[in-house]
């Protein structure tokens, strides 16, 4: 196990390192002067630009520039955003919790709906639920999430008026005392029940929209791994000794079937961050996705490259976590 952990950790470090080369290359392919990738000419005085050139060694050879780039990254310095006029690091720290809250909610929704759907589809293999699950997962890849978000907004906020159009709280309301930056959690911890209700009401619609595309993926994964497991000898034994089908599936088959699902959940999270780009901009959710759209469309290079790097770091770490978890759950993995 130790060897597996070390190897997996090293691989992540290599990929992380290569990721910084990728963003460094992107930063160097911005039109005009490479300083534009750190601080936009539109807000920087000549003195600031000279300072940036010196700090990033832009008159030195490219390998030296890369080393300086890495050094600045490690100090959390991602440049200056044209959009907010703050340092990109500060922006990302501010917007990150909102995205985490939204993505966690979306993931919970997708699991609560997709999990049982997958189990039912496997039990009634080729039955009505099975076909419905397959239809949902095909539709999930075909409906653009930005259209689904607009549709949900029209129906629930505009027509039925039961949910807010967007934002994390009603306009003009102060957020709960800061602890995690997740408003629902912070409100819960501090017992601010009004705010908790309001935060939940606001996260409901964007969370469901964002989570809906993952329902099909999760249902399909649970279904196919459950079907694989059901053919095993130990499941036949459990049936043969007269266990009711509920117990066969619940306490024998499902446990093993959930192992591959762990991997899918990790991969799905990357998809959620991608979907957040659209969901957040439509629901005015002040997270990384909305920041990515604002910075990319304004050609605020420091901003968009900062988000890109941070999101990649999050995904690489999650993949590492999933692989480690997988190693614990399935001993066969550690050997290969």
């Amino acid at each position: 196990m130790a060897q597996y952990l070390v190897r997996r950790l090293l691989l992540s470090v290599v990929v992380l390192f290569l990721t910084t080369i990728a963003t460094f290359t992107l930063a160097h392919s911005v039109p005009g002067d490479p300083t534009a990738a750190i601080v936009s000419e539109k807000i920087a005085t000549p003195a600031v630009i000279a300072q940036v050139r010196k700090k990033y060694g832009l008159d030195k050879p490219v390998p030296v520039q890369y080393v300086l780039y890495l050094k600045n990254l490690l100090h959390g310095d991602l440049g200056q955003s044209l959009t907010t006029r703050h340092s990109v690091g500060r922006d990302l720290k501010e917007f990150f919790p909102a995205t985490v809250e939204l993505a966690l909610f979306a993931m919970m929704f997708a699991m609560v709906v997709g999990g049982p759907l997958g189990v039912l589809a496997a039990i009634r293999h080729n039955g009505a639920v099975d076909h419905a699950a397959r239809g949902v997962s095909l539709l999930g890849t075909a409906v653009p999430i930005y259209y689904l978000a607009l549709l949900a907004q029209t129906v629930f906020a505009y027509r039925l008026k039961i949910l807010p159009f967007g934002g994390r709280l009603d306009d003009g309301i102060d957020p709960p005392k800061h602890l995690t930056g997740l408003y629902t959690v912070d409100a819960l911890v501090h017992g601010q029940w009004n705010l908790l209700g309001m935060a939940l009401k606001h996260v409901l619609l964007p969370g469901i929209v964002l989570g809906s595309f993952a329902i099909g993926i999760i249902a399909r994964m649970i279904r196919s791994s459950l079907l694989d497991v059901m053919n095993n000898d130990y499941v036949r034994t459990a049936r043969a000794k007269g266990l009711p089908e509920r117990a066969v599936i619940g306490s024998h088959a499902l446990r093993n079937a959930l192992i591959p699902t762990v991997t899918v959940l990790g991969l799905t999270f990357g998809g959620l961050l991608a979907g957040a780009v659209f969901t957040e901009s439509i629901f005015r959710w002040p997270g990384l996705g909305q920041y990515a759209v604002q910075t990319a469309t304004k050609l605020d290079f420091a901003g968009i490259l900062g988000v890109t790097l941070v999101v990649a770091v999050v995904i690489i770490s999650l993949n590492l976590l999933v692989d480690i978890l997988y190693g614990f759950l399935d001993p066969r993995i550690r050997v290969n």
Binding site: V14, V15, L18, T19, I21, A22, L26, A27, S29, V30, P31, A37, G270, G271, L273, A274, V277, A292, V293, T295, A296, T297, L299, F301, I304, L305, V307, T308, V311, A312, I315, I316, N319
Partner: peptide, 26 residues
Amino acid sequence: MRAADVVLAFPSIILAMAITAVRGGP
């Protein structure tokens, strides 16, 4: 394959946004 790993570490839409931006916009 390591190059592939790196590209796969980014959500495709976000990397595509970054590439479009640094290539000079829409």
